[in-house]
Design a binder for these strands. Structure first.
Lengths: 250, 250
DNA sequence: CGTTCAGATGAACGCTGTTCATATACCGGC
DNA sequence: GCCGGTATATGAACAGCGTTCATCTGAACG
């Protein structure tokens, strides 16, 4: 508790080292995920890239999963940006379902386009399945993740209020939507050998079915044949800090 | 290829050692997953339980992921049994949607009831994300897994043929159903800290929405309030070889 | 009996997450 | 200006991981 503030100006440069090096470590870890991929996210590698010893990481994070959680939180901003961009893009659309469709396809496209980051955020297993204490029992695992989910939930609530969706608990519907999207991304990442149908057809079918399933009048996205064909050109629009990494193209 | 058969009776005990020890290793690995959990599935532990050295495992499996694939294949029979039991149970039901609902809830219940096995089968990441060659390029990763999926696909095709589901490619619909179910199970396993809605509500909402979304007439499972409430008593009916493992209850 | 050879092994390599005694550098108090 | 204390950082070490390899064993064959 160095808040005693050594009289005056000495407190500041010390403070910078305290919290800032933590951010610096997270930035190094983030860069490793982006450039070398998920498998390379190792304590020793992070330490090496951050220019510190491996033991020093344990001054800022109690263990590996805590660092991973911080990295996930940092990586989340990419998904959040894609989310927001999709919402803004579809804002003028009078059809409220189109907004949901935009959000869903944004989620799917981001996950499929950034599989390593997605694995860190949503597919890192809890170490012991049973061996995880909630830590500070008030704060959730990923703050910005919670925020993103609540954005989805708010969108769902709006749809229900306007009578577009059948009356239901917005939280349950939002969780189901999230889970469905996650399942698609996760399976495509984990089982690339499976003879999947074309991705556009899969994404379109999933989004259309869910929209139809939750709609009050049973209407899908477009009720037509190619509900998710118009987008597909501007897929890379939301990339903010892509980084070509060698030898891991696909 | 020792089929030369050393004259007579000597061939048999040799043959037993060849293919049978492979099965024995897989059985040991399976028992480890069931009793000690997913995290304990390591080469050295499997070897120790199987009564052989760690290096001996590499006489039967080229590397760890191949062993995991074999274990996954072995564990799949539990899910397959739950699948079949659900189908048989719902066979008398005249409503074809009920069959699909039974299959979906069987999948979800099995996955949520056997999280360690589920992680081996569906959530083990491909080692390098890019570093996986298809090996023998004709055989899929998990034979019985493929069979199970084709059972689902056949069920979907039947629904489409009878006009219950809207006309569509059965494979895409089956993949979407699988992905949605997987997403629910995977997220509940990976993110147990998230403030999820009650599981019954989640499962019911998901199953109903998908049924409604793919149905030709937009009809859900029961169109009522609690579509998944009648089952829930006979959840443990399909357990065939449960094994109470110490200290990992939840 | 001697040879051969598949099957099994112990030891080793390089890596992992994590801990701990030790060293360094900076700080307030004298 | 110097001293003692305290946070910060480190190298070395531990146990365990997947994997490889030279070596050993034991049964089958001529």
């Amino acid at each position: 508790m160095p808040g005693k503030a050594t009289r005056a100006r000495a407190a500041k440069p010390r403070r910078r080292s305290a919290e800032d090096r933590r951010r610096q470590v997270v930035a190094a870890a983030k860069r490793i995920v982006l450039r070398q991929g998920f498998e390379a996210l190792t304590m020793r590698r992070v330490a090496r890239l951050a220019g510190v010893s491996a033991a020093a990481l344990y001054l800022y994070f109690p263990d590996r999963v805590s660092l991973m959680a911080a990295v996930a939180d940092a990586l989340f901003h990419g998904l959040l940006a894609a989310f927001r961009a999709a919402l803004i893009r579809a804002e003028g659309n009078p059809d409220p379902r189109a907004r949901l469709h935009a959000v869903m396809t944004a989620y799917l496209d981001w996950g499929l386009g950034h599989p390593d980051e997605y694995r860190v955020i949503f597919m890192t297993p809890i170490t012991g399945v049973a061996g995880h204490r909630p830590g500070p029992p008030g704060v959730p695992a990923a703050p910005s993740g919670q925020a993103t989910f609540q954005a989805l939930q708010a969108e769902v609530a709006r749809l229900i209020e306007r009578g577009v969706f059948r009356p239901a608990e917005p939280q349950v519907v939002a969780e189901a939507l999230w889970a469905a999207g996650h399942g698609l991304v996760a399976l495509l990442i984990t089982k690339p050998d499976f003879p999947w149908s074309p991705r556009e057809a899969l994404v379109g079918t999933m989004a259309d079915a869910l929209c139809r399933g939750f709609s009050a009048d049973g209407t899908g996205l477009r009720a037509g044949s190619k509900p998710a064909a118009q987008r597909g050109e501007d897929r890379h629009a939301e990339a903010d800090e892509r980084d070509p990494r060698p030898g891991r193209s696909r």
